[in-house]
Amino acid sequence: MLAKRIIPCLDIKNGQTVKGVKFVEIKEVGDPVELGALYAEQGADELVFLDITASHEGRKTFVDLVKRIARNINIPFTVGGGISELKDAEVLLNAGADKISVNSSAVKNPQLINDLSLNFGSQFVVVAIDAKHQQGHDWVVTVNGGRIPTDKKLFSWAKEAEERGAGEILFTSMDHDGVKQGFANEALAKLSDELSIPIIASGGAGSMEHFKDVFTHGKADAGLAASIFHFKEIPIPVLKEYLNKEGIPIRL
């Protein structure tokens, strides 16, 4: 049976791992390659590395880092951040990335999804969507780390991304991110019902029960989290043992 995936996410700035709380305060938590290899050994099913560096210099550091990751880590990994054209994706593919994720750049230029998927295959293209729930309204897609609302709505944008060739959707609820009160299960379940590609849930993991809930009520294919892993609040082997006992299909 296909296992539900547990995915630690590492935010990278100038080649180092960082994790912001609600994307503002930032704390360093170590070397990305060492941390990634440790997670792989502990049973992480995939890894995500997001480059939050804006500078040209930082960008070069990130590509070098992706090469090191590809040489040292034996599970699939996705890289994201700063991919606005085919050329950016190609550099990362050649550096050894298994998948890339696009977020703001796809909102600005949806054709990018088509181009990426035609050139590199849809299995290579993860469309990341950050959205905020508006009282009594739909979920509004935001960009720039949740700071800027757009005119796109979560469900229609996710569907459009699938039609344009996305291989997976990585949905982060900006209301749940960093709050540790659980994932946005209702919205996730709706995404899973409406789309035929895998959904990765992000934002809100605070306890092991939250993962159980996101795989049952949230119908997610994968659960992504950062700080609970980085700060060793929930060790991956303990989490997977728990989910297995709860009857969730998991790779032990």
């Binding site: 296909l2 291989g167 899973s192 035929s196 895998p198």
Partner: peptide, 19 residues
């Protein structure tokens, strides 16, 4: 081919870890 009805929320591609 996607099963009909798709009670288990099967996705295509088959992506991830299986036995």
């Amino acid at each position: 081919q996607m099963p009909e009805p798709n009670a288990e929320n099967i996705k295509i591609p088959h992506m991830g870890w299986n036995t």
